[in-house]
């Protein structure tokens, strides 16, 4: 028992370095900055897209969160890509982030 208590810190996920990118106009909610190299602090729960969205809302989102987030997910019309693949192929909100992952939020365009 005592040993597992002492080693409890091992259960804690290490900080993660990930690239968060916005495009298609979604960057306008983030001061026009497209690429953000971010470090997510170590925490007990593993980082997934669900809590990454909470972190983005708190730390990066500059204005009008309703134009980016709806409920606990992104609003309709924003595609989420994990390492250049549709998040639907990887578990959507439940995808567990890995160090050096690249997450792209792209707002779809409609103009022509």
């Amino acid at each position: 028992m005592g040993v597992s208590c002492e080693l409890g810190f091992l259960n804690m996920a290490a900080p993660l370095s990930v690239e968060v990118e916005f495009g298609g106009g979604a960057e306008l909610l983030f001061d026009g900055v497209k690429k953000h190299q971010v470090t997510l602090p170590g925490q007990e729960e593993p980082w997934d897209i669900r809590n990454l969205l909470v972190w983005i809302k708190k730390n990066l989102l500059k204005e009008r969160p309703e134009l980016f987030i709806q409920g606990d997910s992104v609003r309709p019309g924003i595609l989420v890509l994990i390492n250049d693949a549709d998040w639907e192929l990887l578990g959507e909100l439940d995808y567990q982030l890995q160090d050096q992952d690249s997450i792209l939020f792209i707002s779809t365009l409609h103009g022509g």
Binding site: G25, L67, P76, G77, I78, S107
Partner: peptide, 25 residues
């Protein structure tokens, strides 16, 4: 399949408001 739900109308920007470069189209 990709967009089962339409985006909220207020999140859609047209070319008149957002601008567009002709070479891009």
């Amino acid at each position: 399949c990709i967009f089962p739900q339409p985006p909220p109308a207020e999140t859609v920007t047209n070319c008149a408001d957002g601008g567009v470069l002709g070479v891009v189209t």
